[in-house]
Design a protein around this nucleic acid. Sequence first.
DNA 1: ATATAAATGCAACATTATTGTATTTAGAAA
DNA 2: TTTCTAAATACAATAATGTTGCATTTATAT
Lengths: 150, 150
Amino acid sequence: MAQVKSNYQFEDMLQKHNLKKTAPRLRVLSMMYSKNTATSQPDLESVMNDIDRVTLYRILNVFEEKGIIHKVFDLNGTANYAVCHSDCQENHHHDEHLHFNCTACKNVYCLNELNIPKLTLPAGFEPQAFTIYASGLCPKCSKKGTAKVN
Amino acid sequence: MAQVKSNYQFEDMLQKHNLKKTAPRLRVLSMMYSKNTATSQPDLESVMNDIDRVTLYRILNVFEEKGIIHKVFDLNGTANYAVCHSDCQENHHHDEHLHFNCTACKNVYCLNELNIPKLTLPAGFEPQAFTIYASGLCPKCSKKGTAKVN
DNA sequence: ATATAAATGCAACATTATTGTATTTAGAAA
DNA sequence: TTTCTAAATACAATAATGTTGCATTTATAT
């Protein structure tokens, strides 16, 4: 579900992280919070096509550093960005949830509800983080057949 | 463990998939089979720098189509290629194993032994494939601290 | 030995990402 | 409010990665 937040809340978020409240940053925030799926870098660029590409990259980078968003690569290796759900902190992400990549509409869903089961790795491997990727049909596309959603 | 195969076996592999036995293809095969980790696209390019970049892309693509290798993106979104372990067939990969990305040496290990536990997704999601990524220290690097391995 | 389909090499181009610097602007201070 | 300054944005240039079309070469079937 897309989180509904006011512009005031986005301004607060920026302030909390010692980031200046600028128009480009507020627009990126409000776009990403309005969706329940991750946003691909190409999509971001085309929607925000009046903002300089480099500015976009830098905004995404600081947001990621600050733990506001996280980056996830889809099946094609394309970067997707999604808001972090709960307890991400600066340089310390907790995005160990399942990422679902729909093969029809290409959307990437962050399924935060799902916990990743404990896994025992072969001797010597010292895992620090896990992510699971699943691909298949999302609810909208499994209903509609393979019709394009969005 | 790197699989030891002779050039004859690589030629057989190509023949079995109706691919011509060419020098570039044999070199790519023997390189990938000599390693127990995936090979990044940049690494491949620099090792095979006398082979045309486009040829390399095309070789990797057919090998992937034929189920000889599979592609996996590492933490930075870089493409990595690894030999498929057992029952991959043309256009039907079974690479549902765990990919371990070492944060020190950057190597990507395919841990085929490990089975991925069954997961139940929220209603409506129809998963067709899973991959788990883990990151942390691989056996070599956890021993050596953060020293560069290879 | 030769014919030919397939593979490679090369050139051009598209997309994605990075770096440096000048200009603009948010927010602090006067 | 006005002024100052560090931070953010815009712009230019470049690097890295991936794709397409076509001429040339080569593996292999005849």
